[in-house]
Design a protein around this nucleic acid. Structure first.
Lengths: 238, 238
DNA sequence: AAGTGGTCTAGACCACCTT
DNA sequence: AGGTGGTCTAGACCACTTA
């Protein structure tokens, strides 16, 4: 797809790259929660390599904005509080509005058909209340659109923030209302894409991201603040 | 809650951080041109430190998207061709439209007055044809606005791309027409900020960035082939 | 005043690209 | 097959934080 040369069979992946990718995945999935301190000693203990490859991986993640490094004091996963979630959603939304606009002239009929199939499966998953599947299909839907934007730099930014927020979404899930709104909004976006209605697409996409933002923030707040003077045991915890 | 705000007087800056900041500045200013290969041997030769601090600096810059690292093959400054410039301008524009919208409720009268002063100086600099001053004041104008957005993550993205494109602008300069358009557009943006006219602001900012993009692309193209598409004398790239 | 852990150096190893 | 240069290890050093 890009000029990554010729897929050189990925013969030998350096240790620092493997560590970087693995740590990134664990941070984004929430397996390493925000706020965790990352010491080289612990990483050496865990992975069995010496400090320098670990340090290189940490520097790369620092450049990506995933962790914070204080000179002479160590590294830590950046916390994701409500303010930061709001900021990142806003930022991601701005990028998504751009990307969906850019892709309008590039979307083939085949791509539109693919989007339709993904949408149908997503609607079915919502009906069955399969949260994991909904999450995956939602990502597929957006990815397939943006892939046609012709702006790989923007896709990288989108991916980064989508993954970051995706970790949280895996933890907090969707509200039932949000699931149905998502289906309706995707439907409208799909229709606007077919009609190549740029202005409407921008409005729809902004509303779509805004709705996701509000929903996640509400669920984060609800979990942090049970606000139940009596032992409200509404809905079991799995 | 982690204690990231301690301001420890930055007593001792590690070598890798100093190298990273220095290399970043030289790349962004164009002192190290796009496409340059960065070997550790050359860096050791130049700075006198061993390889590992250099490698850490390169990893950080890789995470920031400034350089490319091919495993077992080395690092190089990413080339900035017309396509990438267009992509980055589009991306930056989307972020700027967001940031200017967010700052509307946060702009004080004092901030507006400050913007007015910057604008007056910029108009004067345009009249005197002082390109460097115009460049600096234009940055000041935008920075002062976005600083009030309350979205530091977005400001980081803006800064990164503004610096990247700023290096090119230092090389290619502005067209006379662009200078005057800039003044007019800033004037209109300032007025819309005073009136808190969100819709108009979005339109204005989008036009503003689009104008800058087209101007830079035209000047890059003009310099690349002065009018005769002769065969590329500079062949082997990579 | 001691300890923890980040930082840097020197050298050996080996993947990739030549001849 | 040789060379170049990226990659990794082990250890010494020292900044920052404990008590």
């Amino acid at each position: 797809m890009s000029d990554l040369s010729r897929t050189p069979t990925a013969s030998t992946v350096p240790t620092y790259a493997a560590l970087r990718d693995r740590l990134r995945a664990e941070i984004l999935s929430g397996k390493i929660p925000a706020g965790t301190r990352l010491t080289t000693a612990a990483l050496v203990e865990r992975f069995g390599y010496s400090q320098m490859p670990m340090r290189e991986a940490l520097q790369a993640l620092h450049g990506e904005g995933l962790i914070e490094i204080q000179p002479h004091r160590g590294a830590g996963v950046l916390p994701l509080d409500a303010t930061r979630v709001r900021n990142i959603y806003d930022l991601r939304g701005a990028v998504e509005v751009l990307l969906v606009r850019l892709c309008i002239p590039n979307l083939t009929n085949a791509a539109l058909a693919g989007l339709g199939r993904i949408h149908a499966r997503l609607r079915e998953a919502v009906r069955k209340q399969e949260a994991k599947v909904v999450f995956a299909l939602n990502n597929e839907f957006h990815d397939l659109i943006y892939r046609h934007s012709g702006n790989p730099e923007g896709c990288v930014i989108y991916d980064r923030y989508a993954s970051l927020l995706g970790g949280l979404r895996g933890e907090y899930g969707y509200s039932p209302a949000r699931l149905h709104a998502m289906v309706d909004e995707h439907e409208a976006i799909l229709e606007a894409l077919r009609l190549q209605d740029e202005r409407r697409l921008e409005t729809l996409m902004r509303t779509h991201v805004e709705g996701a933002k509000v929903d996640l923030l509400q669920r984060m707040a609800a979990k942090a603040d049970p606000q139940a003077p009596n032992r409200s045991r509404r809905g079991g915890r799995r």
